[in-house]
């Protein structure tokens, strides 16, 4: 399952979505997620799903790559669906609705990661929220944290896989036994994982300090610039949200 983590992985492609300004993509994902939570009917959920499908097609990211990102949360989705069916009146409808919403949120956030480099996301966050500097919010530091987090998700996933392989070769079997046994077994993966992550974080901090992090007001090699494509994308984003709100008001 660790092998299926797609969050934080960039999929190199020359597409309309890839070339958009990261601020446009961040705004688009925020509006999509807002739209998903506003949607209370299956029709508006399907409308959102069609919009996301169009974006996936425009991004030219293979669908199997997007679906792969769903595998790690498949168990979570199944549990939520079963609980809804058992405990909630009209449960089947609720289960479908909630599952669709979760899948849509994951698709939207995955699409952002797969089509945007972590540094671009960080630039987008930093530039988009630069007004918060006046409120003494450390926007640059927060953007760097976001960038590092996205960069290190696949690296830590890879590290976890290596540790798991090492422990498996020493007799660990995570597939056998009950919940308690599996939880106990996972400790032998989690503890080395923590130790390794802390060591990495410490070394990264030293490397960043020695490369003058915090020296002064930083510049960017590629300053962000809006294009006409971004204007068109903003029109689509606002139209999407308007349609979802109208569906909600019209009880569609």
């Amino acid at each position: 399952m660790i092998r299926d983590v797609t969050l934080g992985r960039y999929y190199r492609q020359d597409s309309f979505v890839h070339t958009l300004d990261p601020r446009t993509k961040l705004c688009g994902v925020a509006f999509l997620i807002a739209g998903i939570f506003i949607s209370s009917s299956v029709i508006s959920c399907i409308f959102t799903m069609l919009c996301i499908a169009a974006l996936v097609w425009l991004s030219r990211v293979p669908l199997r790559y997007m679906v792969k990102g769903l595998l790690p949360i498949f168990v979570f989705l199944a549990v939520v669906a079963v609980l809804n069916i058992i405990l909630v009146p009209n449960g089947v409808f609720r289960a479908i609705l909630i599952s669709l919403r979760v899948v849509e949120v994951i698709f939207a956030s995955n699409l952002l990661c797969l089509s945007t480099r972590p540094r671009e996301i960080s630039n987008g966050v930093e530039t988009g929220f630069s007004w918060m500097r006046h409120l003494k919010v450390p926007v640059h530091d927060l953007a760097t944290i976001v960038s590092i987090a996205f960069t290190f998700i696949p690296i830590l996933a890879e590290e976890a896989r290596r540790i798991l392989d090492a422990q498996t070769s020493r007799g660990l079997d995570m597939r056998k036994g009950g919940l308690v046994k599996k939880t106990k077994a996972s400790v032998s993966v989690i503890i080395p994982m923590f130790v390794s992550a802390i060591e990495r974080a410490e070394n990264l901090a030293v490397a960043m300090e020695s490369r003058l992090y915090g020296c002064g007001e930083p510049t960017r090699l590629h300053p962000l610039k809006y294009s006409y494509d971004d204007a068109a994308a903003y029109v689509c984003i606002f139209t999407y949200l308007l349609v979802v709100i109208l569906m909600k008001v019209g009880r569609l």
């Binding site: 480099r117 540094r119 490369r211 510049t219 960017r220």
Partner: peptide, 24 residues
Amino acid sequence: DNQIIGDTVEDDIAFALENMGLHP
């Protein structure tokens, strides 16, 4: 692996230079 910060080679080299506030 513990000191590479950029997503591309040029981004990684640019890290210190950006911190120095140099013109693009």
